[in-house]
Nucleic acid binder design. Structure first.
Lengths: 196, 196
DNA sequence: ACGTTAAATGGTCAATTGACCCCAGCCACT
DNA sequence: AGTGGCTGGGGTCAATTGACCATTTAACGT
């Protein structure tokens, strides 16, 4: 699992293996069973979480009980309720395993000590967050301007493995449509009646 | 204008006035008339832009000619097409002045040299981008889960001055609804027929 | 002051989508 | 093997909203 983390970090910054060895003791490891929660709404998000194996989703529940998915975190991805992680305010999000998963987790004090020890890591997280901001902005502007079908096709193209690994009704709630609407638009696509 | 920039930076990090003096020569200044563009879709976003005075909007145009606003940048705010700024790829966004505006602008090479000269600035931008990511995530999950009315009331509460400074039809396109729908829901709110 | 443009309001109509519901197949657990 | 839960598909119906349109009001430029 640390191999994947090292690989992901060195895709973006220069970090020696010796420097990386300094990082390792700051992480705890955790295994999650499918459907197990690592964070629940109302609790504080005490960890920044790296997915070594498996798949997590981060979602809110609205006043009518509907679920709205902010993120699927595949292998190599980070996830947390960032606001809660940095402010110790109660989390808005639940984070749940969609598959048996293995995680690396770092608390905020450890994370800050890491940034002090290795300033290059500050740069790594800035790049990470920056890329996440760009992607989130793109998704937001897409949700304002695209048809549900365009959104679905884009999602499937960006994350082809999600078709096998993520239930359709969760894809629907990531896209902001009901599962019935997604079923209908998949039928239209399959029958050639689509106009994307 | 540099006073406002210094104030904004020192809200987040420690920076001496001597250190700030090192920053100033890296910025160019620009005045914009109302309706003037500082970036057009298809061009490269060569500057990261700080709004000293005035108001900008960042928006895309969809295939039917509809406008979708990603951001209003009030005084003290930064704006750019971040993806384009960092990759030199053509911008997806237009950035236009809603009022006569005064801007501080920094190119990417200057910005990188600034980060090398003053590593604390890397931290400032990470915090800035992090807060922007948190806000964008909140807005995205809101656009999936909230009624248009909830979105409008939240917007007005967060940015009360926008009522005087931003046309209603632009607020509509920031919220992802038509100007007709916004007009109707404002009527319902004013007449007490609303159910937020 | 006047003419033009921009902005806001609001009516009508149709289409899309959510909500509700049912069914069939698959999977996990006992 | 049996049962319950999960997942996906799809029908029906009603409501919300977009699109189109017209009118009024406000702002801007000469």
């Amino acid at each position: 699992m640390f191999d994947l983390l090292y690989k992901k970090i060195t895709e973006k910054i220069t970090l020696t293996e010796d420097e990386f060895e300094l990082c390792k003791p700051l992480f705890s490891q955790r295994k999650l069973r499918k459907r197990q929660f690592i964070l629940q709404e109302g609790d504080v998000s005490r960890y920044n979480i790296f997915v070594g194996k498996g798949l997590l989703r981060s979602y809110t529940i609205d006043e009518k009980g509907g679920e709205h998915i902010l993120q699927f975190a595949f292998e190599g991805w980070w996830t947390a309720d960032l606001y809660s992680f940095f402010t110790d305010e109660p989390s808005l999000f639940n984070i749940e395993a969609l598959e048996d998963s293995e995680l690396l987790m770092i608390t905020r004090p450890s994370w800050e000590s890491l940034l002090n020890k290795l300033p290059a890591i500050e740069r790594y997280f800035r790049i990470l967050i920056q890329n996440s901001l760009i992607a989130t902005q793109r998704r937001l502007i897409g949700s304002l301007s695209e048809t549900a079908e365009q959104k679905y096709l884009k999602f499937v193209k960006a994350y082809p493995e999600s078709i096998q690994r993520v239930p359709q009704h969760m894809i629907a709630s990531y896209l902001g449509i009901t599962r019935e609407t997604l079923s209908r638009l998949r039928r239209d696509i399959a029958s050639g009646k689509s106009f994307p």
